[in-house]
Design a protein around this nucleic acid. Structure first.
Length: 497
RNA sequence: GGCCCCUUCGUCUAAUGGUUAGGACACCAGGUUUUCAUCCUGUAAACAGGAGUUCGAUUCUCCUAGGGGCUACCA
């Protein structure tokens, strides 16, 4: 038997990648990497009703954006393909015949209406909905006749009527189920497509998957899956059931509560590093014995560091609530760490609206945009904050109330006078000396020699330059704005008072 | 309703049969500072409840409560 570690991520292409799925692939990836195994991408598209055009490409793209590479899959190829379930119909058909022959499954001709009716009645009687196994004991002759008559059928798994089924989860240990509570679940639908319950077991075996990581929502079908492996005579892989990610109210994280699609986060300017760092901490933490270097907090983890410290045995089993504020912290942290070149490149798309606010060529230059972004870098939680935060750099017609210029309890005319003085000082600085260091030096020297209070001058100056209550400092803003624009804005402020 | 899973600060979590129960985010306070942000320092904040085992339980066992999942010809 092969001891090769093979882990698969098996999403169904619903049109977007759920943030919870991103966490799942990350753990798949980490298990594969830390155990020297392969990571396989398999597309589970056996539900015809839920087909979404372009979803597979979208999935592959966003996974690539996240930086997680697959060793095998629809794109990478590999010896166990095809990796898209809808292209594996022959395999399922063949395996269904086998399981039928083994007597571990049977054809069920019950009409959907009968089943619905039965279920409703059972619920009305407060009994658990449960297939009554009407077709389980059909004779060969009856089956033949129904097939000949063209009656549609599904194939159901035959569950033991009595006894217990013991399954083992790598994190939770052994879990016991009463066989009598297990429904004869459908393996093959009447359209010939396999259900997840059949396809995943068949594929995991055929693709030689060693570790199955899946959501906790699959725990209740675990014994049925285990039984299917037994019926086939296959050795089941190791199973790890990942606790669910919950929303703030404690429910399953769903679209209604806000963004759940990784694409949404990407569009808002969240970085893959931040998303991954956030996700990995939901259900895992570096064990105490492998503490990260102390100059960093041990929760800031690059993908490489995760691989270094990860051990799936350290994974937790209690559900975690999605804390968007912590995600923001990570994102802000990674933005601050980023080089200005990279940030300017990634931030550029978020500047589009601002560029429309100016007719000044210089303000539309890459260099100017980059400098504006640079001054707001430490204030960003996400890239999409850039538009609002840098707006004043571009806007030719700053619009603000005159009161904004007034520092504490100064008189308006005093502020006006101070701004005139500032104007005079700035005017004297030569164009080629227009650097924040020089501007600052001239201003501070003046204030010191005349024993003036910094706030009385610097607040009005900054407010005049930015039109905002909160912004980067006046000297650096002045430098980026340039001498001409800075003087223009101060003159305008004087006029306002 | 039935079956199954889970339970440490508000949130993510660490550790331990005997500790001042640790860290991170958020919060609050202070420092740096013209503002905001960054950065630094500090405060406050948790073992769900009950019973048992034990010299001793947050830690082990059981019960209760609470939360969650499943209960489809969806995954």
């Amino acid at each position: 038997m092969s001891t090769n570690v093979r882990v698969r991520f098996a999403p169904s292409p619903t049109g977007f990648l759920h943030i919870g799925s991103l966490r799942a692939v990350l753990f798949d990836y980490l298990i594969a990497k830390t155990l020297n195994g392969q990571l396989i991408l398999r597309i589970e598209d056996t539900d015809r009703k839920r087909q979404v055009a372009g979803a597979v490409e979208g999935l592959i793209n966003i996974l690539a954006w996240a930086g997680l590479k697959f060793d095998e899959g629809p794109q990478a190829g590999g010896p166990f393909g095809p990796y898209i379930q809808s292209e594996r119909m022959e395999i399922y058909k063949e395996q269904a015949e086998i399981i039928l022959k083994k007597g571990a499954a049977y054809r069920c001709f019950c009409a959907a209406e009968r089943l619905t009716e039965m279920r409703e009645q059972q619920q009305a009687e407060k009994k658990p909905p449960f297939y009554d196994r009407l077709c389980r004991e059909l004779s060969q002759a009856e089956i033949k006749k129904k097939i000949k008559d063209g009656q549609p059928f599904v194939i159901r798994q035959k569950m033991p009527l009595t006894g217990e089924v013991m399954v083992h989860d790598e994190l939770r240990g052994s879990i016991k189920f009463m066989a009598a509570s297990l429904e004869d679940q459908i393996l093959i639908k009447s359209d010939g497509m396999p259900t997840y319950q059949f396809a995943s077991v068949v594929d995991d075996h055929l693709m030689q998957i060693s570790h199955v990581l899946r959501g906790e929502e699959w725990l209740s079908s675990f014994p049925k899956n285990f039984l299917l492996y037994q019926s086939f005579g296959w050795q089941p892989p190791k199973f790890i059931h990942l606790p669910l990610t919950l929303n703030k109210d404690g429910g399953k994280l769903s679209k209604r509560q806000g963004d759940v699609a990784v694409e949404d986060y990407k569009n808002k300017g969240y970085l893959p590093e931040a998303l991954l760092n956030f996700c990995v901490l939901q259900g895992w933490h570096p064990s105490a014995s492998v503490k990260a270097p102390k100059e960093k907090t041990d929760e800031i983890l690059s993908l490489a560091e995760m691989i270094e410290y990860f051990d799936y045995k350290d994974m937790g089993i209690s559900p975690a609530i999605f804390d968007a504020e912590k995600l923001d912290y990570f994102n802000g942290y990674y933005i601050r760490q980023m080089s200005l070149e990279k940030l300017a490149e990634l931030g550029r798309p978020f500047m589009r609206e601002n560029l429309k606010l100016t007719r000044d060529r210089r303000k539309q230059s890459d260099d100017y945009i980059k400098k504006a972004i640079g001054l707001e870098q430490e204030r960003l939680k996400k890239l999409s904050d850039l538009g609002e935060l840098t707006e004043f750099f571009f806007n030719d017609e700053l619009n603000y109330e005159p009161e904004l210029l007034i520092w504490k309890n100064l008189e308006a005319k005093q502020v006006k006078e101070n701004l005139r003085i500032i104007y005079g000082l700035l005017e004297k600085i030569a164009d080629r000396d227009w650097l924040k260091e020089n501007i600052e030096k001239d201003m501070i020297d003046y204030l010191k020699t005349n024993e003036l209070k910094a706030g009385d001058y610097l607040w009005p100056m900054r407010a005049a330059l930015t039109g905002r209550a909160a912004s980067p400092g006046p000297f650096e803003v002045a430098q980026v704005l340039g001498k001409e624009e800075s003087l223009k804005r101060i003159k305008m402020a004087v006029k306002k008072l």
